[in-house]
Design a protein around this nucleic acid. Structure first.
Lengths: 186, 186
DNA sequence: CACATAGTTCAAGCCTGCTTGAACTTCAAG
DNA sequence: CTTGAAGTTCAAGCAGGCTTGAACTATGTG
């Protein structure tokens, strides 16, 4: 491998790893979690913590913690090779399964909480006799949150989704209120 | 209004505003941008910067900058009332239009860049004669990014989306490569 | 034009959350 | 059981981004 080829290789590996880091950060995880997974994913052989530390320029402690997190989310697998002390890590390669699982746990839960908060606010505001315009706005927001949740759920499970129904969230007020009445509970 | 009612009111307004802040932060914007919009959205009358500063407990400078941002994204409207010096702000109430527009500009652009980076990496890796397994992994990631982009685009435009096609991204390698060949450009 | 209030700017400080690295614990090999 | 490499922990430090507030600019009013 000559100098130029080496430069190019550094470049595409590096830019890919950084791009994955960006996406992972975008999803609310740590940038370096993405970088570690991507580095393994661009390698054909498993790597030890020491190698990752060296090749990604991170501290021993950082690598240890990142690997723990990634293992927890089953985004990589630990393996051992005879006559070698260190654990070796390989990436989970089933993107669909892996991303779906992780997003389900985190983002879906988050949206559900928002929806619950809005539902509670609606009830309180109504009980308090607040201006109906405000109550309907709370309803609108809650239905939007439910739409996001549904869209994300369907995205994750890979099922069919008619997003028209999600965006129906924004029908005129009367219809929204009707929807609300049929769906509320407690 | 007695003490308890007041407490409840504080509570649902407050929790709603914080929930909106959470969602806005989740989408990569500033928490306080969400709080400002939500505060206006829960009011039936427009508010001045001074009122927002007071009611949300923010500094003059912060409010000024937040309003500038929100106005830029057309998430609220400036109005003026005769015989009153200050500008008054009211929220954009069309959630669908507003969220769609903002997400299109930011998130769609972001995903497109990732896709471009991966496309470039694929080309470089291929040119370099890298292990085909690695090249196919780059392809897999790029197709996934394209799937995300498509899903988000359709979510935003409110069009119909068969997410099955998005998740088809993860078919066995042969099919992926075929898909890749038919879709690439340049 | 002068005044006073509204609005903007930005350097400094603050806050949060990530990273470091040294001390500690675990564990396979001999 | 001993040894030393591998792995973990966490207090302290660091970095980046948000907020503050004082100085400055703009603008409506008389």
């Amino acid at each position: 491998m000559n100098f130029l080829e080496h430069a190019v290789e550094l470049d595409w590996r590096h830019s890919t790893i950084e791009a994955v880091g960006d996406v992972i950060e975008f999803w609310g995880f740590k940038r370096n979690q993405g970088r570690v997974w991507a580095h393994l994913y661009l390698s054909t052989s498993p790597k030890s913590a020491a190698e990752l530390q060296d090749e990604l320029g991170m501290s021993k402690g950082a690598v240890s913690m990142l690997l723990r997190d990634l293992e927890y989310w089953r985004v990589l697998k630990k393996t051992r090779i005879p006559n070698r002390r260190a654990w070796l890590y390989s990436p989970e390669t089933n993107l669909k399964e892996m991303i779906g699982r992780v997003l389900r746990e985190r983002e879906l839960h988050f949206i559900s909480e928002v929806s619950e908060t809005l539902k509670k606010a609606e009830a309180d505001a109504k009980a308090e006799g607040v201006d109906p315009i405000i109550v309907s706005r709370l309803t609108k927001m809650r239905i939007f949150a439910d739409g996001m949740k549904k869209a994300m759920d369907l995205f994750i499970t890979g099922a069919q989704l008619d997003l028209r129904s999600v965006m129906d969230v924004f029908r005129p007020t009367k219809a929204i209120v009707a929807h609300f009445k049929t769906k509320r509970r407690k």
